[in-house]
Amino acid sequence: MRAYTPKDDVQKKSYYTDRFWVAPQVAKSEVSDDAVFAADLAAIKAKFDVLDAYIQVEQMVVVINANDNYSVLEFLKNECEYTQLSEMSAIDWLATEGKFEIFYQMLSMAKRKRVRIKCKIDEKEAIQSVEKLFRSADWSEREMYDMFGVVVNNHPFMKRILMPEDWEGFPLRKTYPLQGDEFAAWYEVDKIFGKEAREIIGPENRDPARIDRYDTQRFSRLGHEVPFGTDISQGEPDTPLVYQEKEGVFMVEKFDAEKSVVISDRQR
């Protein structure tokens, strides 16, 4: 029998410890299981270095060197019938490996197969653009730069696509806070009212969850409602909840079954 441990502070601790937690993994299988993928992989291996290759969810994943990305995609497009680049972006592995993973999701309509090409680059390293091969990479690479800060060489228009051009920071990096850093918090104020407005507004007003207990213009306290703008620093009176039914409603009477008349003759 398991030894008893006190459960008083069980809410304060996390339930799931490392001991029992197993990160779910998508099952991998050998490339040789699929004849079409095996032929494609052999063709790639003949020309380029392949660091790793496997099949995951009926799609082949091929890990290559980052320098080969343009030539591998060109080879897949022209020789292996993978004519569409359906998606591409980066994954932030900076915390664990200090690298970005770039993936290219390729689709072959002729073979009805999907292949994912992966490569890894360092944080400050740039990657070659594949916009010349696939027009779909134009905006995807701009988004990758916008969100992760991965610079793409030879891109025709390497600018931010979603965030404003004077934005600082790259929002999809794991180190970027969801609610934004200080620059993000003051962005619209700096732009419209100027930086000197920061002091007038005050940093405490940047918190959307802030509640001022004594501000009766913007907040009201349930059960203690007072007229708009009343000074309640000395305390406020209770306004107890009163239901209409208790004292009756004007012109409305409660239904009383005893006093009511039941009509038995429906044809009356």
């Binding site: 806070p177 969801l178 609610q179 934004g180």
Partner: peptide, 9 residues
């Protein structure tokens, strides 16, 4: 949308 990109009101 309590995020970096949204004006909070």
């Amino acid at each position: 949308f309590n995020t970096y990109a949204t004006v909070q009101g």
